[in-house]
Amino acid sequence: MQKQRICSASDVPDNGMKSYDIEGRKILVVNAGECFHAYQGLCPHQDVCLDEGYFDGQLLTCHQHLWQWDIRTGDAVGLAEAPLEKYEVEVSEGEIFVVQSSALKAVDMLKDVSPASLERLEGLARREQLPAGTVIYEVDDPADDLYVLESGRVEFTIGRDDRTRLAGFMLRKGEVFGWAALLEQHPRRIARAVCHEDSVLLRLNGEAMLEALEADPTSGLMVMRRLATLVARHTTGPQNS
């Protein structure tokens, strides 16, 4: 999405929010007093319109099942199981414009990475457009690269030959898979990853990522912490490392 005009700043009242349909997607504009924020307009949980929710100046809450987000970052708070996709906002001459931000900025694991390191990581990322049906990796392939979903849908299956089983799927911008690439002596893939729809992925080499993070240990530590949480969460089921 190119830079896109959404509305006039005066259209959204102080501490209020409004959603707009732009090129087939809903975008929520929030007026937080001193600045504006823009997010995906539908709740990542069950596609409920977020403009019907609550905004208290700090937290945005979906009225359906009370998922909440930090209004400054879109980070999930409390019950929420997914962050909100954030758009970069520009206000110029009283008009609000948004730009879609990079999928890397939507990656939970990279949330605390310094802007400089994030830029380095952006430089490492290869953007790949893959048609539906593409096998991204097979069981037992070496786990060299990590992937970030930008759009589309990726499914994972475990098992071999005719004894395979679906082991989860990913469909949100910023979801990461193949994170075994960040582990020492990376294990081999234990699942098969296939594009279920035409998909766009960012592909990052694990070694190169680790090198970039070694140069910035503070960011590196935060990434490893979030990675540990991710691993813990996924040990209850999915095999998409």
């Binding site: 089983r165 679906l166 082991a167 989860g168 799927f169 990913m170 469909l171 996924h234 209850t236 089921g237 999915p238």
Partner: peptide, 8 residues
């Protein structure tokens, strides 16, 4: 049931 994290 195919869930996001696994199949039941």
């Amino acid at each position: 049931v195919n869930a996001r994290n696994r199949t039941h």
